[in-house]
């Protein structure tokens, strides 16, 4: 446990100043926990224990409950992610059209498994349920600070080429 446990003080106010406007708006509005967690994740990329404790302090919701909500939903992450988040669709249409082969190619090229981040901190791989672009299956979406980009009709070679290009740019 970190020495600077923030559930008993406000020393972390400075650390969470980007989150302040969000907390000001939502902390006391009932039913806003998921919204707050989404905004916090947008800002910090993931939900750290410190962030959860800070939100708890501002909202009065117990950290255990926040943790419960954060782990219930697929969207929330408790670990930092790479610069590029690869959301590889594993929906039915993608599965039928060979998304497992695409996953193998990505894992082989990047040397990571689902949920992991490359050592250089560039890529994180996440399998997701369905991106809703089923006619272009297999599909992946890559999220980064530059915005979201969706790639369809993937093949083993195409997916490796896309990742290689991103790696080169970065």
């Amino acid at each position: 446990m970190s020495e600077k446990c923030c559930c008993c003080g406000t020393q972390n106010k400075e650390q969470f100043k980007e989150l302040e406007p969000v907390l000001e708006k939502y902390a006391k509005v009932p039913g806003s926990l998921i919204t707050i967690l989404q905004k916090a994740q947008d800002i910090y990329g993931y939900l750290s224990i410190d962030t959860i404790n800070h939100i708890s302090e501002a909202t009065g919701i117990k950290p255990a409950k926040i943790y419960g909500v954060a782990t219930f939903y697929a969207q929330f992450r408790l670990q930092p992610i790479g610069k590029y988040l690869i959301m590889l669709c594993q929906g039915t249409a993608c599965h039928v059209n060979g998304s497992e082969i695409i996953e193998e190619a990505v894992c082989e090229y990047l040397g990571i498994q689902d949920g992991e981040t490359t050592e250089d901190g560039l890529f994180t791989l996440n399998n997701v349920a369905c991106l809703g672009c089923c006619s272009l299956a297999p599909v992946m979406m890559i999220q980064s600070a530059d915005g979201d980009e969706t790639y369809g009709n993937l093949t083993k070679d195409k997916v490796v080429q896309i990742l290689a290009e991103i790696r080169e740019r970065a």
């Binding site: 594993q90 929906g91 039915t92 249409a93 349920a129 369905c130 809703g132 672009c133 089923c134």
Partner: peptide
Amino acid sequence: DEGDPGAFMDR
């Protein structure tokens, strides 16, 4: 919250 994998009419 179109959750069915394979359905995208709502989107």
